[in-house]
């Protein structure tokens, strides 16, 4: 049975382009919109890509800037300069 990984971000101007990038890059993810926050679930793995976010905000973006918008996450983390990946491995 697949296990769900998830990331929860604030629903703010800073986070919306990240949310957009995640939903564009991760096929079949489920987006739950709650008051003030957005929780994105996906089976097995989910990746936030530096390039996809940079494309949307038009400036350099460090994946560690996620810490400014992130409320919660589920999954094992693999973090590098170009991506932020959650998976159950």
């Amino acid at each position: 049975m697949p296990r769900i990984v998830s990331i929860t971000l604030q629903n703010t101007d800073d986070a919306r382009p990240i949310i957009e990038a995640i939903t564009a890059d991760n096929a079949d993810c489920t987006v739950h919109s709650y008051p003030g926050i957005v929780k994105i679930d996906r089976d097995d793995s989910l990746t936030v890509r530096r390039s996809s976010v940079e494309q949307r905000i038009g400036r350099d973006w460090d994946p560690q800037e996620l810490h400014l918008s992130m409320v919660s996450m589920a999954g094992n983390l693999d973090e590098d300069d170009d991506y932020f990946n959650l998976s159950w491995s």
Partner: peptide
Amino acid sequence: DPFRLTMDT
């Protein structure tokens, strides 16, 4: 630590 945060970051 999976969070590769250093003190400065």
